[in-house]
């Protein structure tokens, strides 16, 4: 009995509620005649394509800057990398690698500057981060119009300049990871390459947290005064954490876009920080403590919920726009619920 209690306590009330909600949705989905294998395949893809974005929370939280609400900064760098790769005619795996290779140095610089800024606003990183993200997205709205990209698949066809709002990646490196080593069992499609790549990123981050720099970073996040007294530069650790988070966001959006099949520009990255934050929180992280396992569990829960809620809402409310409204209510509701868990369930 006490064993059951400790297990329940370890899972936590918040996660329990979400898991129950997920189960009731699955039952509802089965009830309205949805194909389980399709839903499972979709859930797997969404898990894989969002995992790296959620993973970007790890270095931010560990270094003590809280959840990285400035994720759009990294996302924009990733998009820039992807566009450059398409412009240069990158296709397939080479295109993906090129996109990441271009995105990393840009996001490193952006992350460094963003980290410098966060060091000036200790204590309100998350709010400042949100607005940094909003500002950068707005600035880049102008940027996308002015940048000298020429590839006809990306620019507005009539004007011949200015980037389109959504750019198809069919002809470049769309779905390269999803299709890599993909296989089918029954109706279930497993995007092996995508999931392996995302898990490999998790492994890299895990190894980093167990390195000298990673340990120093975790110590400065956990107790800055301890870190200073131990000869660790807290500011430097925070910059490293922010840089890594931004770089992961850049890689994350490239992975996301190849799976999604489109690069989304302009306003699209505006609210992209919320889903990863919510996923990490649902997984059991708090704004001061996070583990890789939180990221993986949280992404599975959050993305499965969204995947399954949509078709259920569609069937229950077939009237035009109503299902879209329900979908928004569900996804934002989950995000809201997750944000109330930001304290890690402490009272």
């Amino acid at each position: 009995m006490s064993n059951v209690k400790t297990i329940l306590k370890n899972i936590g009330a918040a996660r329990l509620i979400i898991i129950l909600f997920l189960f009731s949705l699955i039952i509802a989905a089965a009830g309205v005649g949805q194909s389980m294998s399709v839903l499972a395949s979709d859930s797997l893809v969404r898990f894989g394509m969002n995992l790296v974005l959620t993973l970007a929370m790890v270095p931010a939280v560990m270094s003590g800057t809280g959840m990285n609400f400035g994720l759009p900064v990294g996302i924009l760098c990733g998009i820039l990398g992807g566009l450059t790769s398409i412009e240069l005619g990158g296709t397939g795996m080479g295109g993906l690698v090129l996109a990441i290779a271009v995105a990393l140095p840009i996001s490193a610089v952006a992350g460094y500057l963003y980290g410098r800024l966060l060091n000036m606003v200790k204590g309100s990183e998350m709010m400042i981060g949100t607005y940094v993200g909003y500002s950068m997205v707005s600035i880049m709205c102008i940027g996308w119009l002015l940048m000298p990209f020429k590839n006809p698949s990306m620019v507005w066809p009539i004007a011949g300049r200015g980037l389109r709002t959504t750019i198809s990646m069919d002809s470049s490196f769309g779905s390269v990871l999803d299709k890599l080593w993909a296989f089918q069992i029954g109706g279930l499609t497993v995007p092996t390459g995508l999931i392996l790549f995302s898990l490999f990123m998790c492994l890299l981050v895990y190894l980093f947290t167990k390195s000298k720099t990673g340990i120093a970073m975790a110590a400065s996040g956990d107790n800055p005064r301890f870190a200073e007294a131990s000869g660790i530069s807290v500011n430097r650790s925070r910059i490293i954490g922010t840089m890594l988070s931004t770089m992961l966001a850049a890689v994350g959006i490239v992975v996301y876009a190849q799976s999604f099949g489109f690069m989304q520009l302009y306003q699209a990255p505006l609210n992209m920080a919320f889903a990863p934050v919510a996923a990490a929180l649902l997984g059991g992280a708090s704004t001061s403590k996070i583990k890789i396992s939180h990221v993986i569990i949280g992404t599975i829960l959050f993305q499965s919920l969204l995947t399954i809620a949509l078709p259920v809402a569609n069937v229950l409310m077939p009237e035009g726009n109503l299902s879209e409204v329900i979908r928004l209510i569900v996804s934002n509701g989950i995000i809201l619920f997750a944000l109330t868990q930001a304290g890690g369930g402490r009272e």
Partner: peptide, 16 residues
């Protein structure tokens, strides 16, 4: 570092 293990608490400064 309160939430960290005894072993790491003992060794972090020596590592860094």
């Amino acid at each position: 570092v309160p939430d960290t293990s005894i072993e790491l608490n003992m060794t972090i400064p020596a590592m860094v």
